[in-house]
Amino acid sequence: MMWNMVLRRIGVGIVLLWVVSVLIFALTQILPGDAAQIRLGQQATPESLAALRKDLGLDKPWYIQYVTWIGNLITGDLGISNAGGATISSLIGNRIGNTVFMTAIVTLIAVPLSVVLGLLAAMYPGRLLDRIITSGTLGLIAVPDFFVAIFLILFLAVQLGLVPAVSYLSGTESFWKSIYVLALPIGTLVIVVSAQMIRMTRAGILNVMSSPYIEMAILKGVPRKRIILRHALFNAIGPIVNVIALNLAYLVSGVVVIETIFAYPGLAKLMVDGVQTRDIPLVQACGMIFCSTYVVLILIADIASIMSNPRLRHPK
């Protein structure tokens, strides 16, 4: 029963990835001008265009192009960048480490922090601590991320001079040195993603807190801390993992503004650069990576909520 559902969910994930790949491919087909045109520029002669098209396989029907593209993608050959002619794998390879590093650090700080703060708020709803947490997070959700970033730069880097304002890594720094260099973007992202996760944790727990089995636990004389941690948390896990997954996906793909502000060479910035230079193969590759991240993270979240359901884990 449960494994059926998990397998079905994985199947849906694969279908979804396929649909996404078709969409990404279709969008780049619809855009005016093709790779050959972009590479050779406006002044290219029809003959040289035709030669390059033949070379790139652009003269073949679209479905052949799609199959070639997806086949290469699956085997790890992401193609050649239109700008400069470097392989896209090497371009992405340079950046992906940076993105993964930052995402991992932010996740390790933000997820436990959010769950703990969310639980604290839910423990005593309406009390002072809860009000500070709920109004604080609401404020942070309302404020755009670049504002948080600029505020932190102004305050911590410019005024107090505690940390560097620009996050440039040469690749030779020690771990702690890297953390120090990245303190500001990490701080910004922790603040930005935690707000939602805290609120969702609190809401998820409070929703469960109104159920009869919680009232029963109160009437059994179970202390409030144990009620929340043992009785409520496990039943609220579904929505909490989902919002965590969404925020992690955002960390991989949606942090363009933050990367730009701190001049941090991550994947999101690479994609934006690709758009500016009309480097279609690069945009396609980044698009596929971002979409896959979303699909995989949401898939993990779904599987986690399926696994947390005792009805599915232990069928009759």
């Binding site: 009869p212 089995y213 029963m216 009785h231 009805r311």
Partner: peptide
């Protein structure tokens, strides 16, 4: 309670 089904924690 009236409904044991609701009073037992499902998890």
């Amino acid at each position: 309670a009236q409904s044991a089904a609701a009073t037992f924690n499902p998890a």
